Simulated assay, not measured.
Amino acid sequence: MKTQLNCPCGEHLTGADEDELVDNVRKHLTENHPGHDYTRDQILFMAF
């Protein structure tokens, strides 16, 4: 299970599970990188 992702902006994002990680990444993108939308699969591909 992947629960961490490092955004290129330097932010380290985490979640208790993959669902929470995807939610946290999407929230981060909305707040900090408007217009950058990724699918769940794309987010999990970049996660570790």
Rank of each mutant, 00 (worst) to 15 (best):
M1V: 07
M1L: 08
M1Y: 03
M1I: 05
M1D: 11
M1H: 11
K2S: 07
K2N: 04
K2Q: 04
T3F: 02
Q4P: 06
L5S: 06
N6H: 14
N6I: 13
C7M: 03
P8T: 00
G10V: 03
G10H: 05
G10S: 04
G10Q: 00
E11S: 04
H12G: 10
L13P: 15
T14A: 15
T14K: 09
G15W: 03
G15E: 01
G15R: 07
G15I: 05
A16R: 13
A16H: 13
D17F: 00
D17G: 10
D17M: 01
D17I: 01
E18F: 05
E18R: 01
D19H: 03
D19V: 01
D19P: 04
D19R: 07
D19N: 10
E20M: 09
E20F: 00
E20D: 09
L21V: 06
V22C: 02
V22F: 02
V22N: 07
V22Q: 02
V22D: 09
D23G: 10
D23M: 14
D23L: 09
D23Y: 09
D23T: 11
N24G: 04
N24T: 07
N24L: 11
V25C: 07
R26Q: 13
R26V: 00
R26L: 11
K27C: 09
H28T: 05
H28C: 06
H28E: 00
L29K: 06
L29T: 02
L29P: 01
T30Y: 04
E31W: 07
E31R: 12
E31P: 00
N32K: 13
N32E: 07
N32P: 05
N32L: 09
H33D: 09
P34F: 14
G35L: 13
H36S: 12
D37R: 13
D37H: 13
Y38P: 01
T39Q: 08
T39Y: 10
T39C: 07
R40L: 10
R40T: 14
D41V: 03
D41T: 10
D41Y: 01
D41P: 05
Q42E: 15
Q42N: 13
I43E: 10
I43V: 12
I43G: 04
I43F: 06
I43Q: 10
I43W: 12
I43D: 09
L44D: 06
F45L: 14
F45G: 13
M46P: 09
M46I: 08
M46W: 06
A47Q: 00
A47F: 01
A47R: 03
F48S: 12
